[in-house]
């Protein structure tokens, strides 16, 4: 499904709607350039799971941030990760278990995610407008 967002608030709301449909073990892969709204979307998803979205900040620095909500929530950001380092990141430990994993810059780890992963593409349209395409889940 394709949605249009014209602000951070709308992107966050779409994230919230998406988050409400998630179950333990789900993997959400986010694709989009710098500034496309990936972290904003993660804030929305996390808030629907009862996490204070103020606590969700960019994970580019720490790569993997783990939150304890009703179920574990893993915010993963592969912006700085190179292919050679992937095998040693231990990514698989966070996928498909008891928790929910949301991955920014998922293209840096193509082939690492389960077949039933949910794919979200965030595309720049203009200034604050983004096209958001969700595959693998209806929200």
């Amino acid at each position: 499904m394709k949605l249009q967002s014209s602000s951070d608030q709308e992107t966050r709301e779409i994230g919230r709607r998406l988050g409400k449909r998630l179950n333990a073990g789900d993997v959400v892969c986010l694709y989009g350039d710098l500034g496309a709204g990936k972290t904003v979307m993660v804030k929305g998803i996390a808030s629907s799971l009862g996490i204070d979205e103020r606590d969700i900040t960019s994970a580019s620095f720490t790569i993997i941030a783990e939150y304890n909500a009703a179920m574990p929530f893993y915010h993963i950001d592969l912006y700085r990760v190179t292919p050679a380092e992937l095998p040693e990141l231990g990514l698989q430990e966070y996928l498909g278990g008891r928790g929910i994993a949301v991955i920014e810059w998922a293209e840096r780890a193509e082939g690492e995610f389960p077949d039933n992963s949910i794919r979200v593409d965030l595309r720049y349209v203009e200034d604050h407008t983004r096209e958001i395409e969700i595959k693998g889940l209806e929200i």
Binding site: S60, F61, I63, Y79, R80, V81, T82, E85, E88, L89
Partner: peptide, 9 residues
Amino acid sequence: KYGGVVPEL
């Protein structure tokens, strides 16, 4: 060389 803090390195 790698454009950022590379964790594994």
